[in-house]
Design a protein around this nucleic acid. Structure first.
Lengths: 236, 236
DNA sequence: CGTCTGGTTGATACGACTCAAATTTGGTGG
DNA sequence: CCACCAAATTTGAGTCGTATCAACCAGACG
């Protein structure tokens, strides 16, 4: 089984077996984080770069009055904090959605990796830019789309991202976030997410139960979401 | 008058006079773009990196049915498309809000600049990460805040960003975007932005007329917006 | 078996949108 | 300098999407 991070990077620039070995070595030792816990302490200035090896996490920001927005979902192969590698402090929190397995990479090892593997360095830089593009699309999602369009968009995005790391096929994938999680990612209430999901089910677009998502009609779901995959830059 | 881009970068990492000269040379020749026009063709694969020398622009994404979301405001010193430098295609558009003066930097010159000025290279990398943080905060803004909180947050952010490039002081700055622009940045209708601005004025928080913004009570405006400046990473 | 988390349902309230029109502002040309 | 026009702002009335509040239900787990 090839590593999720390698698959992720390979999706954009060819990663050689040699490169892949380099990645595999750094992510060999993984630590387990229980659900709802933070793999990275908030506000802390971390000394390691964290890679999600298995499981789902999210990046979130909270307002002083308790409101909470999930600003990104982190899937296997995602880096938690390339940013803090350079910036002084974490401006948001990270929480595990499922049980998580995380690899901690020391800055020195990271530097060595990018120095010895220029393709990886470039792929990481791309990764960063693509994350930015995803964040922009989320801005559009929250600013312009209605509840059902938003949820539809989120589901399609997550399905496609899972597929590029080999965690989805046949329009179907594990889908651990609760309706509460979806709500705080979509800027809706959990109640409304619930009704919206029912609507999508009723219209024969999706199946979603027991933490498993199946997209029954990809074409119509994408149309509803006005989903344009170009922002994911999935071509090689 | 020192250059906006230099000021911007200097806000995060000390830029030497030598570095500043390098920047000044690349941005000496500027091109003028009239309002509402695009300094960079949409969909095109640009051969140049564009820097806003003077004026305001915005980054936007449109949906097939015509809805349009401004995902970022570009102020003097901002780079339009460091991203496309690496990614294959532009996944969004750029439009001038005011008359714009733009410097086009050839990739080779860009490479030379970062090679000869490591501080600049690092500062540019930071810039990228901060833009990402800003985009995350916009996600929170659209997902969690009410209309008046959103507008308040937007105004404070823009004021602070202008201040770091020397374009604002005494809680006052030029403010060219129309209520329509604010609406499509805040995910609201222009009508509602109008009423929201009136509310902010009525409460003695701001003055805004003839394209000039004055923040009358910064403390209360920031409280209303639940504004936490840490995401701008303004410290050095 | 009781407890807890997540999902579901119903009734009601409200923030923001829509549509439509009036008014003001700013730019342009005579 | 004024007349004109288009763009931007303002106002009002009515509607709708989503939030709120409050139960209730199902399954997981200790």
């Amino acid at each position: 089984m090839t590593h999720a991070l390698a698959q992720r990077l390979d999706a954009f620039a060819r990663i050689s077996p040699y490169d892949e070995t380099g990645i595999a070595q750094l992510t060999r030792v993984a630590r387990v984080v229980p659900p709802r816990r933070a793999p990275v302490g908030e506000g802390e200035r971390p000394n390691f770069v964290h890679v999600i090896v298995d499981g789902w996490a999210c990046r979130y920001k909270s307002l002083p009055d308790g409101r909470r927005q999930i600003v990104a979902f982190l899937l296997p192969g995602d880096l938690c904090d390339l940013n803090v590698y350079i910036l002084k402090q974490m401006d948001h929190g990270i929480a595990a959605i499922t049980r998580l397995s995380v690899a901690d990479i020391a800055p020195d090892d990271m530097d060595a990796l990018t120095a010895n593997h220029p393709r990886i360095a470039q792929a990481l830089w791309r990764e960063t830019l693509i994350n930015q593009a995803v964040q922009r699309e989320w801005t559009v999602n929250l600013g312009q789309r209605t509840a059902s369009e938003r949820i539809a968009h989120l589901l399609v995005e997550l399905y496609l991202r899972l597929r590029t790391v080999g965690l989805a096929r046949n329009e179907s994938c594990d889908f651990p976030p609760t309706q509460n999680d979806l709500a705080s990612a979509a800027g809706l209430t959990a109640v409304h997410v619930n009704r919206t999901l029912q609507e999508l089910r009723r219209d024969g677009l999706i199946e979603l139960e027991r933490r498993r998502l199946t997209i029954l009609d990809m074409r119509r779901l994408m149309d509803l979401a006005m989903f344009n995959p170009n922002y994911l830059h999935l071509h090689r």
